[in-house]
Amino acid sequence: MKKYIVPSIRLTLVLIVLLCVIYPLFIAFAGKLSTGKGDGEPIIVNGKTVGYALVGQNFSKPQYFWGRPSAVGYNANGSGGSNKAPTNPDYLKDVEKRIDTLLKYHPYLKRSDIPADLVTASGSGLDPDISPDAAKIQIKRVALYRKLDEQKIADLVNSHIEAPLFGFMGPAKVNVLKLNVALDELQKH
């Protein structure tokens, strides 16, 4: 083994220079050309960062569209899912509670109107999106609390539905933060 120790050490050192210094710095410099300059893409309202488009945030006030339940409370310092098994009785009680809350705020809904993504926690706890159905069922409530015309909000939701990739790959979705920023904007006018 002795024969191989010195080459191992020397090769490790030069590879560290190549793989841990040159490669990441090259990508970091190239990343400066991207929209967020490699720091993430912030959403700025009145000159202040209110969040990042990709990272979901907590919306619990009734005048906003709500995102998905989060196992980490949308604390972007960390991340994670509930890791609850589909058969776990405590978990199923949690889901039941979420359904009750939704029905309380949306008395006009039937259980079968509620899409699964609004009562289940995401994998990262920071899911920025909801399904178009999940946005649509909230329109009436948001309109009520904001005293805005329902049709106006429905139009806003429709314009925020992002189509699948190239139109045929993956699900359609609505970014909750972008939608709520636009909603605040709508109310101002």
Binding site: G81, S82, N83, K84, P86, Y91, V95, I99, R111, S112, D113, I114, P115, A116, D117, V119, T120, A121, S122, G123, S124, D127, D129, S131, D133, P171
Partner: peptide
């Protein structure tokens, strides 16, 4: 509950 696309717990 309607699970139109499938099981969503722990999924994005």
């Amino acid at each position: 509950i309607t699970q139109s696309t499938g099981s969503m717990e722990g999924k994005e």
